[in-house]
Amino acid sequence: LVRYRTISKIPQITLNFVDLKGDPFLASPTSDREIIAPKIKERTHNVTEKVTQVLSLGADVLPEYKLQAPRIHRWTILHYSPFKAVWDWLILLLVIYTAVFTPYSAAFLLKETEEGPPATECGYACQPLAVVDLIVDIMFIVDILINFRTTYVNANEEVVSHPGRIAVHYFKGWFLIDMVAAIPFDLLIFGSGSEELIGLLKTARLLRLVRVARKLDRYSEYGAAVLFLLMCTFALIAHWLACIWYAIGNMEQPHMDSRIGWLHNLGDQIGKPYNSSGLGGPSIKDKYVTALYFTFSSLTSVGFGNVSPNTNSEKIFSICVMLIGSLMYASIFGNVSAIIQRLYSGTARYHTQMLRVREFIRFHQIPNPLRQRLEEYFQHAWSYTNGIDMNAVLKGFPECLQADICLHLNRSLLQHCKPFRGATKGCLRALAMKFKTTHAPPGDTLVHAGDLLTALYFISRGSIEILRGDVVVAILGKNDIFGEPLNLYARPGKSNGDVRALTYCDLHKIHR
C-alpha cells in the first residue's frame, strides 16, 4: 500500500512540481520508500527539464536528425535550378540546329562534286560548318556529364541527390541515346576521305529529338503553341524528305545512260545542264529549293507536275512521300480545326451564355430598361472574369491554397485601402477568403433606401454616388468604403439613402 501511494504521487509531482519531503505519510521509514524516492526525484528532475525545454521552444527539443539540413553532394545540380533551365534551352537550340543542318550536310555532301578544292585539302579548321559541328559534339558530351550530376524525382516524389543513384537512373534511361548522339564521328573518321560515311553517321544526332519531343509535351495545353509546333514538325519532315529526294537524284545521276532524272530535267529547265562528264548542272541553292518544293507539294497532295519522278527509285520514294503525307494530314492537320476551336472556345461560351440571357429575357418578357441593365451587367461581368467562376475553380483546392490565391487576387485593395494598413498577414488572409466580388454598370442602383444592410462594401474600381431623395450626399471612388460596420450592432440596419454607380464599378463586399 505504501508503495502504491508513493507511485500514485508521481503525476502530481510531474505537473505541480511538489516535493515529496513535505508529505508526512511518505516520510515513514520503510525500505521500499527509501529505494523508490531517489528514482522519483530523478524522474521528476528529468520531466521538469523536458517541460522547461518545451515551454522555452528551444531548438534542442527536436531530434538531432530533424535539425540537420538535407545534404547535397558537391557538384550536384538541382533539376529545378536556373542554371539547369538555361542549359536545357541551350541544348534545345543545338538539337534544332542539328535537326536542320545534319540531314542537309549528309545529303548535299554525298558524292558532291561542286567546283573547288576537296575538304581534305583545305583542312578541318577552315570549314565553318565542321567547326560548328565540333562545338555541338562537345556541348552534347558536356550535357552527358551534367546529367550524371543532376537530381531527379523518383516514384515516391522524392528528390534524389545521391550521385550513385543518379548515375544508375541515367544509365537506365537516356544515357545510350545521348551517348550515340554525342559521338564525334568527324574526329574519329577525319582524314579518311569518307565524307559520305561521316554525313550518314552524323544523322545519329537526330535521336535527341525524342527527348525534345517529350520536353515539349508540357506545352500541349496551349493551343497556339501546339499549332506552332505542328507546323514546325511538318516543315521539318518536309526538309528531311527534300534532303533524301536530292540524295536519290544525286546518286543516280552519274550512272544513268539517259538523262531522265529530276536533276537533269531541272538543269535543262533553268539552262544549267550537266555536261557529258557529269559536272556542271544547277547550283546547290536551286537543287535544295526545288527538292523542298517537290516534297511540300507531295505532302499537301497538290502535285503540280513541273517536278516529277521519272526513275524507279524516284517513283518509289514519291509513293512513300504520299503515304507520309496522308498520315500527316490525319495526325496534324486533322487537329488544326480542334485547336482553332479551342482557341476561340471563350468567344463561343460568351455567345452561348448571351443567347441564354436573351432567351430568358424573351421568355419572361423583361421590360426594355431592365433588359438593357441585365445585358450590360452580363457584358461587364464577362469582360472582368472571362466567364470563369472563381468560386467553382477554387473549390477543388485546399483552404490554405485558397487563402493564398484570394490574398493575391485582392492584393491591390488590401495594400491601398486604409482600414487594412497594419493588419497582420493572417488577418488579411482571413479577410480575403470572405470577400465576394460584384460588378455594376453605370446607372445601376446597388442599394435602395430602406434596404437591409448586411454587408460592408469596398470599391475596387469606378465611382458611385450616394443620394437622399434627389440630393447627392457624397461621391465615392476607388478604395472608399460604404455599408454597415460589421458586428457593431446586434441587428442589421437599414439604408438611409440610395447608392448608384456612376461608372463601371468593381466592388468587394463582406457579409455579416
Results as ranks from 00 to 15, higher is better:
Y246M: 11
E221G: 13
T76A: 05
R342P: 04
D268H: 04
S308C: 04
A392V: 08
L230M: 12
G193W: 11
F190H: 09
R421Q: 13
D257F: 04
H380D: 15
P309T: 01
F435Q: 01
F296M: 13
T347S: 10
V336M: 10
H162C: 11
A69W: 12
G396S: 15
L93M: 10
V180H: 01
L145W: 03
T76W: 01
F333S: 03
T311N: 01
K84C: 06
L414Q: 01
T437Q: 09
A107E: 01
V393L: 08
C126Q: 03
S81C: 04
T113A: 05
V86D: 01
G325Q: 03
F397H: 01
K66Y: 15
T311Y: 01
N386W: 04
L78A: 11
A330V: 02
Y329P: 05
P254K: 15
S194G: 15
L241P: 01
Y288W: 01
V131P: 01
G346A: 11
V307K: 01
Q372C: 06
K285E: 11
G303R: 01
S277W: 01
L206P: 01
R349D: 15
I135K: 01
V336Q: 03
A213K: 10
Y97E: 01
E221S: 07
D286M: 01
S337M: 06
K285H: 04
D257L: 04
H239G: 01
W240Q: 01
V159K: 01
G116F: 14
P441Q: 06
S258E: 11
F171D: 01
I77D: 01
D137W: 01
I332E: 03
F234D: 03
E221V: 01
A213L: 04
G280L: 01
I138D: 03
V142Q: 03
F294A: 01
H364D: 03
L323T: 07
S383V: 04
I366V: 06
I324H: 01
V357I: 08
D133F: 01
K395S: 12
I339G: 03
V357P: 02
S297K: 01
I189C: 11
Y219P: 04
F304V: 04
F296A: 01
A181E: 01
A181R: 01
F185Y: 08
S331I: 07
S220A: 11
R71K: 15
L227S: 01
V302R: 03
S383I: 09
E158D: 09
Q269G: 01
S194K: 15
R356P: 03
E115M: 04
N156P: 04
V226P: 06
L401S: 01
C232M: 11
K287R: 04
Y246K: 01
N310G: 01
G123T: 06
L343E: 03
